[in-house]
Design a protein around this nucleic acid. Sequence first.
DNA 1: GCGTAGTGTAAGTGCGCACTTACGCTACAA
DNA 2: TTGTAGCGTAAGTGCGCACTTACACTACGC
Lengths: 196, 196
Amino acid sequence: MPRSSTAEERRRKLLPLLAAAFGSLGYRRATTAELASRCDVQENTLYRLWPDKKAMFLAAVDFLFLRRMDKWKAAIDKTHSEDSHAVRLIELTGEDLGENGLYRIIFAALNETDDPDIKYALQRLYLRYHKRIEEEIVRHRKLTGAHKAAEDDDTAWALIALVAFMNIALDLELMNGRKRQQFFSTIAIQLLHLSP
Amino acid sequence: MPRSSTAEERRRKLLPLLAAAFGSLGYRRATTAELASRCDVQENTLYRLWPDKKAMFLAAVDFLFLRRMDKWKAAIDKTHSEDSHAVRLIELTGEDLGENGLYRIIFAALNETDDPDIKYALQRLYLRYHKRIEEEIVRHRKLTGAHKAAEDDDTAWALIALVAFMNIALDLELMNGRKRQQFFSTIAIQLLHLSP
DNA sequence: GCGTAGTGTAAGTGCGCACTTACGCTACAA
DNA sequence: TTGTAGCGTAAGTGCGCACTTACACTACGC
Protein backbone atom coordinates (compact mmCIF):
# COMPACT_ATOMS: atom_id res chain seq x y z
CA MET A 1 0.00 0.00 0.00
CA PRO A 2 1.62 3.19 -1.21
CA ARG A 3 1.71 6.70 0.17
CA SER A 4 0.70 7.28 3.79
CA SER A 5 -2.59 9.03 4.25
CA THR A 6 -2.20 12.79 4.20
CA ALA A 7 -5.93 13.36 4.08
CA GLU A 8 -6.20 14.40 7.70
CA GLU A 9 -3.47 16.94 7.29
CA ARG A 10 -4.96 18.35 4.12
CA ARG A 11 -8.31 18.74 5.83
CA ARG A 12 -6.62 20.69 8.60
CA LYS A 13 -4.92 22.93 6.09
CA LEU A 14 -8.03 23.63 4.06
CA LEU A 15 -10.46 24.17 6.94
CA PRO A 16 -9.50 27.79 7.67
CA LEU A 17 -10.02 28.63 4.01
CA LEU A 18 -13.36 26.87 3.89
CA ALA A 19 -14.43 28.56 7.09
CA ALA A 20 -13.47 31.96 5.76
CA ALA A 21 -15.41 31.30 2.58
CA PHE A 22 -18.56 30.14 4.35
CA GLY A 23 -18.20 32.98 6.83
CA SER A 24 -18.09 35.68 4.24
CA LEU A 25 -20.46 34.15 1.69
CA GLY A 26 -22.99 32.21 3.76
CA TYR A 27 -24.11 28.75 2.83
CA ARG A 28 -25.94 29.43 -0.38
CA ARG A 29 -23.46 31.69 -2.12
CA ALA A 30 -20.58 29.49 -1.10
CA THR A 31 -20.89 27.26 -4.14
CA THR A 32 -18.64 24.26 -4.36
CA ALA A 33 -16.87 25.86 -7.31
CA GLU A 34 -16.20 28.97 -5.25
CA LEU A 35 -15.00 26.97 -2.28
CA ALA A 36 -12.61 25.03 -4.46
CA SER A 37 -11.29 28.16 -6.07
CA ARG A 38 -10.67 29.82 -2.70
CA CYS A 39 -8.87 26.72 -1.51
CA ASP A 40 -6.94 26.70 -4.77
CA VAL A 41 -7.86 23.10 -5.52
CA GLN A 42 -10.36 21.37 -7.80
CA GLU A 43 -13.87 20.66 -6.55
CA ASN A 44 -13.00 17.08 -6.86
CA THR A 45 -10.33 17.33 -4.23
CA LEU A 46 -12.81 18.71 -1.71
CA TYR A 47 -15.11 15.80 -2.38
CA ARG A 48 -12.27 13.41 -1.70
CA LEU A 49 -11.81 14.96 1.74
CA TRP A 50 -15.45 15.42 2.76
CA PRO A 51 -18.50 13.45 1.64
CA ASP A 52 -20.56 16.50 0.69
CA LYS A 53 -20.96 20.23 1.05
CA LYS A 54 -22.85 19.90 4.29
CA ALA A 55 -19.95 18.07 5.90
CA MET A 56 -17.60 20.83 4.82
CA PHE A 57 -19.94 23.35 6.35
CA LEU A 58 -20.27 21.55 9.66
CA ALA A 59 -16.52 21.11 9.87
CA ALA A 60 -16.14 24.83 9.29
CA VAL A 61 -18.64 25.71 12.01
CA ASP A 62 -16.80 23.56 14.47
CA PHE A 63 -13.47 24.97 13.49
CA LEU A 64 -14.58 28.56 13.96
CA PHE A 65 -16.11 27.85 17.34
CA LEU A 66 -12.98 26.18 18.62
CA ARG A 67 -10.84 29.00 17.30
CA ARG A 68 -13.03 31.51 19.11
CA MET A 69 -12.67 29.60 22.36
CA ASP A 70 -8.90 29.51 21.90
CA LYS A 71 -8.92 33.24 21.45
CA TRP A 72 -10.86 33.66 24.66
CA LYS A 73 -8.44 31.47 26.48
CA ALA A 74 -5.51 33.49 25.20
CA ALA A 75 -7.17 36.73 26.27
CA ILE A 76 -7.92 35.38 29.72
CA ASP A 77 -4.41 34.11 30.21
CA LYS A 78 -3.16 37.63 29.72
CA THR A 79 -5.54 39.02 32.36
CA HIS A 80 -4.49 39.43 35.96
CA SER A 81 -5.99 36.67 38.05
CA GLU A 82 -7.92 39.06 40.27
CA ASP A 83 -9.48 40.95 37.35
CA SER A 84 -12.82 40.07 35.86
CA HIS A 85 -12.59 37.78 32.86
CA ALA A 86 -16.11 38.74 31.94
CA VAL A 87 -15.26 42.38 31.47
CA ARG A 88 -12.20 41.51 29.41
CA LEU A 89 -14.24 39.21 27.18
CA ILE A 90 -16.85 41.90 26.68
CA GLU A 91 -14.15 44.28 25.53
CA LEU A 92 -12.74 41.63 23.24
CA THR A 93 -16.13 40.88 21.72
CA GLY A 94 -16.77 44.54 21.09
CA GLU A 95 -13.43 44.83 19.33
CA ASP A 96 -13.26 41.99 16.90
CA LEU A 97 -16.88 41.49 16.22
CA GLY A 98 -17.42 39.55 13.05
CA GLU A 99 -13.74 39.24 12.48
CA ASN A 100 -13.68 35.54 12.07
CA GLY A 101 -17.06 34.98 10.56
CA LEU A 102 -18.41 32.76 13.31
CA TYR A 103 -21.67 34.61 13.51
CA ARG A 104 -22.20 34.89 9.84
CA ILE A 105 -21.80 31.19 9.52
CA ILE A 106 -24.25 30.66 12.37
CA PHE A 107 -26.81 32.86 10.69
CA ALA A 108 -26.30 31.03 7.48
CA ALA A 109 -26.90 27.78 9.32
CA LEU A 110 -30.04 29.10 10.96
CA ASN A 111 -31.69 29.03 7.58
CA GLU A 112 -30.94 25.35 7.21
CA THR A 113 -32.48 24.23 10.47
CA ASP A 114 -34.84 21.94 8.63
CA ASP A 115 -31.79 19.76 8.23
CA PRO A 116 -31.49 17.83 11.48
CA ASP A 117 -27.69 17.55 11.33
CA ILE A 118 -27.27 21.26 11.00
CA LYS A 119 -29.83 21.98 13.67
CA TYR A 120 -28.15 19.61 16.07
CA ALA A 121 -24.72 21.09 15.41
CA LEU A 122 -26.02 24.58 16.15
CA GLN A 123 -27.78 23.43 19.26
CA ARG A 124 -24.60 21.87 20.58
CA LEU A 125 -22.63 24.96 19.72
CA TYR A 126 -24.97 27.30 21.53
CA LEU A 127 -25.16 25.12 24.59
CA ARG A 128 -21.39 24.91 24.85
CA TYR A 129 -21.14 28.64 24.31
CA HIS A 130 -23.73 29.28 26.98
CA LYS A 131 -22.01 27.04 29.47
CA ARG A 132 -18.71 28.79 28.92
CA ILE A 133 -20.22 32.23 29.40
CA GLU A 134 -22.16 31.20 32.46
CA GLU A 135 -18.91 30.08 34.08
CA GLU A 136 -17.46 33.51 33.61
CA ILE A 137 -20.56 35.20 34.96
CA VAL A 138 -20.47 33.09 38.09
CA ARG A 139 -16.81 33.93 38.54
CA HIS A 140 -17.45 37.59 37.92
CA ARG A 141 -20.28 37.80 40.40
CA LYS A 142 -18.36 35.98 43.06
CA LEU A 143 -15.43 38.31 42.50
CA THR A 144 -17.38 41.56 42.56
CA GLY A 145 -20.12 40.50 44.91
CA ALA A 146 -22.60 42.17 42.58
CA HIS A 147 -26.21 41.74 43.47
CA LYS A 148 -27.93 39.55 40.86
CA ALA A 149 -30.87 41.00 38.94
CA ALA A 150 -31.25 37.70 37.10
CA GLU A 151 -29.99 34.16 37.40
CA ASP A 152 -26.57 33.48 35.95
CA ASP A 153 -27.88 31.32 33.17
CA ASP A 154 -30.46 33.89 32.09
CA THR A 155 -27.78 36.54 32.03
CA ALA A 156 -25.62 34.25 29.92
CA TRP A 157 -28.37 33.80 27.34
CA ALA A 158 -28.99 37.52 27.33
CA LEU A 159 -25.34 38.21 26.54
CA ILE A 160 -25.48 35.71 23.73
CA ALA A 161 -28.56 37.46 22.40
CA LEU A 162 -26.72 40.74 22.54
CA VAL A 163 -23.76 39.46 20.58
CA ALA A 164 -25.99 37.87 17.98
CA PHE A 165 -27.78 41.14 17.46
CA MET A 166 -24.50 43.06 17.29
CA ASN A 167 -23.73 41.03 14.22
CA ILE A 168 -27.09 41.78 12.67
CA ALA A 169 -26.51 45.45 13.36
CA LEU A 170 -23.10 45.17 11.75
CA ASP A 171 -24.46 43.51 8.62
CA LEU A 172 -27.34 45.93 8.25
CA GLU A 173 -25.33 48.97 9.28
CA LEU A 174 -27.94 49.86 11.90
CA MET A 175 -25.40 51.72 13.97
CA ASN A 176 -21.90 52.97 13.29
CA GLY A 177 -18.96 51.24 14.92
CA ARG A 178 -18.57 53.67 17.79
CA LYS A 179 -22.24 53.61 18.66
CA ARG A 180 -22.39 49.82 18.43
CA GLN A 181 -19.54 49.40 20.82
CA GLN A 182 -20.98 51.89 23.28
CA PHE A 183 -24.34 50.16 23.11
CA PHE A 184 -22.86 46.75 23.68
CA SER A 185 -20.76 47.64 26.67
CA THR A 186 -23.53 49.68 28.30
CA ILE A 187 -26.04 46.87 28.10
CA ALA A 188 -23.57 44.10 28.88
CA ILE A 189 -22.49 45.88 32.03
CA GLN A 190 -26.10 46.46 32.99
CA LEU A 191 -26.80 42.76 32.54
CA LEU A 192 -23.86 41.86 34.74
CA HIS A 193 -25.30 44.38 37.14
CA LEU A 194 -22.13 46.23 37.76
CA SER A 195 -22.81 49.89 38.47
CA PRO A 196 -20.65 51.98 36.13
CA MET B 1 -60.77 48.84 -21.99
CA PRO B 2 -62.45 45.82 -20.47
CA ARG B 3 -62.53 44.56 -16.93
CA SER B 4 -61.51 46.93 -14.15
CA SER B 5 -58.17 46.14 -12.60
CA THR B 6 -58.51 43.63 -9.81
CA ALA B 7 -54.75 43.16 -9.51
CA GLU B 8 -54.45 45.26 -6.40
CA GLU B 9 -57.15 43.31 -4.70
CA ARG B 10 -55.68 39.96 -5.66
CA ARG B 11 -52.32 41.02 -4.33
CA ARG B 12 -53.98 41.88 -1.04
CA LYS B 13 -55.67 38.51 -0.92
CA LEU B 14 -52.57 36.51 -1.74
CA LEU B 15 -50.14 38.37 0.48
CA PRO B 16 -51.06 36.60 3.73
CA LEU B 17 -50.56 33.25 2.02
CA LEU B 18 -47.23 34.29 0.55
CA ALA B 19 -46.12 35.65 3.90
CA ALA B 20 -47.08 32.44 5.65
CA ALA B 21 -45.18 30.43 3.09
CA PHE B 22 -42.02 32.54 3.31
CA GLY B 23 -42.36 32.61 7.07
CA SER B 24 -42.44 28.89 7.48
CA LEU B 25 -40.10 27.93 4.64
CA GLY B 26 -37.58 30.74 4.47
CA TYR B 27 -36.50 32.27 1.19
CA ARG B 28 -34.68 29.38 -0.35
CA ARG B 29 -37.12 26.59 0.28
CA ALA B 30 -40.03 28.77 -0.71
CA THR B 31 -39.77 27.90 -4.39
CA THR B 32 -42.02 29.67 -6.81
CA ALA B 33 -43.81 26.38 -7.47
CA GLU B 34 -44.44 25.94 -3.76
CA LEU B 35 -45.63 29.51 -3.36
CA ALA B 36 -48.07 29.10 -6.22
CA SER B 37 -49.38 25.85 -4.85
CA ARG B 38 -49.96 27.36 -1.42
CA CYS B 39 -51.77 30.26 -2.99
CA ASP B 40 -53.71 27.80 -5.11
CA VAL B 41 -52.82 29.56 -8.34
CA GLN B 42 -50.35 28.94 -11.15
CA GLU B 43 -46.84 30.34 -10.91
CA ASN B 44 -47.74 32.43 -13.85
CA THR B 45 -50.39 34.27 -11.92
CA LEU B 46 -47.89 35.28 -9.27
CA TYR B 47 -45.61 36.65 -11.95
CA ARG B 48 -48.45 38.72 -13.29
CA LEU B 49 -48.87 40.34 -9.89
CA TRP B 50 -45.21 40.81 -8.93
CA PRO B 51 -42.20 41.22 -11.20
CA ASP B 52 -40.13 38.51 -9.51
CA LYS B 53 -39.70 36.38 -6.42
CA LYS B 54 -37.79 39.07 -4.61
CA ALA B 55 -40.69 41.49 -4.95
CA MET B 56 -43.04 38.88 -3.51
CA PHE B 57 -40.67 38.44 -0.63
CA LEU B 58 -40.32 42.13 0.12
CA ALA B 59 -44.07 42.58 -0.04
CA ALA B 60 -44.45 39.75 2.43
CA VAL B 61 -41.91 41.26 4.82
CA ASP B 62 -43.74 44.54 4.76
CA PHE B 63 -47.08 42.88 5.24
CA LEU B 64 -45.93 40.94 8.30
CA PHE B 65 -44.39 43.98 9.88
CA LEU B 66 -47.52 46.05 9.45
CA ARG B 67 -49.65 43.24 10.80
CA ARG B 68 -47.44 43.02 13.86
CA MET B 69 -47.80 46.74 14.46
CA ASP B 70 -51.57 46.45 14.13
CA LYS B 71 -51.54 43.73 16.72
CA TRP B 72 -49.58 45.94 19.08
CA LYS B 73 -52.01 48.74 18.54
CA ALA B 74 -54.93 46.47 19.33
CA ALA B 75 -53.24 45.22 22.48
CA ILE B 76 -52.47 48.73 23.64
CA ASP B 77 -55.99 49.93 22.99
CA LYS B 78 -57.21 47.30 25.42
CA THR B 79 -54.80 48.46 28.14
CA HIS B 80 -55.84 51.00 30.75
CA SER B 81 -54.34 54.34 29.96
CA GLU B 82 -52.38 54.53 33.18
CA ASP B 83 -50.82 51.06 32.76
CA SER B 84 -47.50 50.49 31.09
CA HIS B 85 -47.79 49.63 27.43
CA ALA B 86 -44.27 48.30 27.56
CA VAL B 87 -45.10 45.61 30.07
CA ARG B 88 -48.18 44.60 28.11
CA LEU B 89 -46.16 44.34 24.90
CA ILE B 90 -43.56 42.23 26.64
CA GLU B 91 -46.25 39.83 27.76
CA LEU B 92 -47.67 39.77 24.28
CA THR B 93 -44.30 39.06 22.70
CA GLY B 94 -43.65 36.24 25.12
CA GLU B 95 -46.98 34.70 24.25
CA ASP B 96 -47.17 34.64 20.51
CA LEU B 97 -43.56 34.44 19.67
CA GLY B 98 -43.05 33.21 16.16
CA GLU B 99 -46.73 32.98 15.60
CA ASN B 100 -46.84 35.03 12.50
CA GLY B 101 -43.47 34.23 11.05
CA LEU B 102 -42.11 37.76 11.07
CA TYR B 103 -38.83 36.74 12.59
CA ARG B 104 -38.34 33.71 10.46
CA ILE B 105 -38.74 35.83 7.42
CA ILE B 106 -36.28 38.35 8.81
CA PHE B 107 -33.72 35.65 9.41
CA ALA B 108 -34.27 34.34 5.94
CA ALA B 109 -33.67 37.82 4.64
CA LEU B 110 -30.50 38.25 6.68
CA ASN B 111 -28.88 35.68 4.44
CA GLU B 112 -29.65 37.73 1.41
CA THR B 113 -28.08 40.97 2.60
CA ASP B 114 -25.75 40.97 -0.36
CA ASP B 115 -28.81 42.08 -2.27
CA PRO B 116 -29.07 45.84 -1.69
CA ASP B 117 -32.86 45.92 -1.98
CA ILE B 118 -33.30 43.30 0.68
CA LYS B 119 -30.71 44.88 2.91
CA TYR B 120 -32.37 48.24 2.63
CA ALA B 121 -35.80 46.80 3.39
CA LEU B 122 -34.49 45.15 6.53
CA GLN B 123 -32.70 48.27 7.61
CA ARG B 124 -35.88 50.27 7.26
CA LEU B 125 -37.87 47.64 9.12
CA TYR B 126 -35.49 47.56 12.06
CA LEU B 127 -35.29 51.29 12.31
CA ARG B 128 -39.08 51.62 12.35
CA TYR B 129 -39.31 48.85 14.87
CA HIS B 130 -36.70 50.49 17.05
CA LYS B 131 -38.40 53.84 16.91
CA ARG B 132 -41.71 52.31 17.95
CA ILE B 133 -40.18 50.47 20.88
CA GLU B 134 -38.24 53.47 22.04
CA GLU B 135 -41.47 55.45 22.22
CA GLU B 136 -42.92 52.91 24.58
CA ILE B 137 -39.80 52.87 26.72
CA VAL B 138 -39.89 56.63 27.06
CA ARG B 139 -43.54 56.45 28.03
CA HIS B 140 -42.88 53.64 30.47
CA ARG B 141 -40.05 55.41 32.20
CA LYS B 142 -41.96 58.63 32.47
CA LEU B 143 -44.87 56.72 33.94
CA THR B 144 -42.91 54.71 36.48
CA GLY B 145 -40.17 57.19 37.15
CA ALA B 146 -37.69 54.31 36.93
CA HIS B 147 -34.04 55.25 37.11
CA LYS B 148 -32.38 54.63 33.77
CA ALA B 149 -29.45 52.22 33.64
CA ALA B 150 -29.10 52.89 29.92
CA GLU B 151 -30.35 55.39 27.38
CA ASP B 152 -33.79 54.72 25.96
CA ASP B 153 -32.51 53.95 22.52
CA ASP B 154 -29.92 51.47 23.80
CA THR B 155 -32.59 49.74 25.83
CA ALA B 156 -34.77 49.57 22.74
CA TRP B 157 -32.03 47.86 20.72
CA ALA B 158 -31.41 45.47 23.58
CA LEU B 159 -35.05 44.43 23.63
CA ILE B 160 -34.95 43.87 19.91
CA ALA B 161 -31.87 41.71 20.40
CA LEU B 162 -33.70 39.73 23.04
CA VAL B 163 -36.69 39.05 20.82
CA ALA B 164 -34.47 38.04 17.93
CA PHE B 165 -32.68 35.56 20.10
CA MET B 166 -35.94 34.22 21.51
CA ASN B 167 -36.75 33.15 17.99
CA ILE B 168 -33.39 31.48 17.55
CA ALA B 169 -33.95 29.66 20.81
CA LEU B 170 -37.37 28.61 19.61
CA ASP B 171 -36.04 27.27 16.32
CA LEU B 172 -33.16 25.44 17.93
CA GLU B 173 -35.14 24.30 20.94
CA LEU B 174 -32.51 25.73 23.27
CA MET B 175 -35.04 26.13 26.07
CA ASN B 176 -38.53 24.84 26.61
CA GLY B 177 -41.47 27.19 26.35
CA ARG B 178 -41.84 27.86 30.05
CA LYS B 179 -38.15 28.58 30.53
CA ARG B 180 -38.03 30.80 27.47
CA GLN B 181 -40.87 32.92 28.68
CA GLN B 182 -39.40 33.24 32.15
CA PHE B 183 -36.04 34.20 30.68
CA PHE B 184 -37.55 36.81 28.43
CA SER B 185 -39.63 38.56 31.04
CA THR B 186 -36.84 38.51 33.62
CA ILE B 187 -34.34 40.14 31.31
CA ALA B 188 -36.80 42.51 29.68
CA ILE B 189 -37.86 43.80 33.07
CA GLN B 190 -34.25 44.16 34.10
CA LEU B 191 -33.55 46.17 30.96
CA LEU B 192 -36.46 48.46 31.68
CA HIS B 193 -34.97 48.71 35.13
CA LEU B 194 -38.17 48.03 36.98
CA SER B 195 -37.47 46.26 40.25
CA PRO B 196 -39.62 43.14 40.41
C1' DG C 1 10.57 -2.51 -12.57
C1' DC C 2 5.70 -3.19 -11.54
C1' DG C 3 1.18 -2.78 -9.63
C1' DT C 4 -1.69 -0.04 -7.02
C1' DA C 5 -3.52 3.81 -4.01
C1' DG C 6 -3.81 8.27 -4.19
C1' DT C 7 -3.39 13.17 -6.94
C1' DG C 8 -4.28 16.81 -10.54
C1' DT C 9 -7.07 18.33 -14.13
C1' DA C 10 -11.08 18.82 -16.71
C1' DA C 11 -15.15 17.62 -18.74
C1' DG C 12 -19.46 15.99 -17.77
C1' DT C 13 -24.51 15.03 -15.74
C1' DG C 14 -28.72 15.66 -14.04
C1' DC C 15 -31.86 18.17 -11.43
C1' DG C 16 -34.16 21.93 -9.22
C1' DC C 17 -35.82 26.21 -9.89
C1' DA C 18 -36.73 31.15 -11.42
C1' DC C 19 -38.87 32.77 -15.00
C1' DT C 20 -41.35 32.54 -19.97
C1' DT C 21 -44.31 31.36 -23.79
C1' DA C 22 -48.29 29.80 -25.93
C1' DC C 23 -52.96 29.52 -26.35
C1' DG C 24 -57.66 29.20 -25.66
C1' DC C 25 -61.31 31.26 -22.66
C1' DT C 26 -64.03 35.01 -20.47
C1' DA C 27 -66.05 39.32 -19.40
C1' DC C 28 -66.65 43.73 -20.21
C1' DA C 29 -66.69 48.53 -23.25
C1' DA C 30 -68.00 50.03 -27.44
C1' DT D 1 -71.93 41.51 -31.56
C1' DT D 2 -67.24 42.21 -31.53
C1' DG D 3 -62.51 43.47 -30.16
C1' DT D 4 -59.41 43.37 -26.54
C1' DA D 5 -57.41 43.15 -21.80
C1' DG D 6 -56.91 40.10 -18.50
C1' DC D 7 -57.41 35.02 -16.76
C1' DG D 8 -56.47 29.84 -16.38
C1' DT D 9 -53.71 26.15 -17.65
C1' DA D 10 -49.73 23.83 -18.96
C1' DA D 11 -45.69 23.07 -21.24
C1' DG D 12 -41.36 24.86 -21.85
C1' DT D 13 -36.30 27.00 -21.27
C1' DG D 14 -32.07 27.85 -19.68
C1' DC D 15 -28.91 28.22 -16.10
C1' DG D 16 -26.57 27.46 -11.78
C1' DC D 17 -24.92 24.18 -8.95
C1' DA D 18 -24.00 19.81 -6.17
C1' DC D 19 -21.89 16.03 -7.29
C1' DT D 20 -19.46 12.39 -10.73
C1' DT D 21 -16.56 10.27 -14.14
C1' DA D 22 -12.61 9.73 -16.83
C1' DC D 23 -7.98 9.55 -17.36
C1' DA D 24 -3.29 10.41 -17.27
C1' DC D 25 0.35 11.02 -13.75
C1' DT D 26 3.05 10.09 -9.51
C1' DA D 27 5.03 8.00 -5.50
C1' DC D 28 5.55 4.33 -2.80
C1' DG D 29 5.70 -1.02 -1.20
C1' DC D 30 7.09 -5.11 -3.13
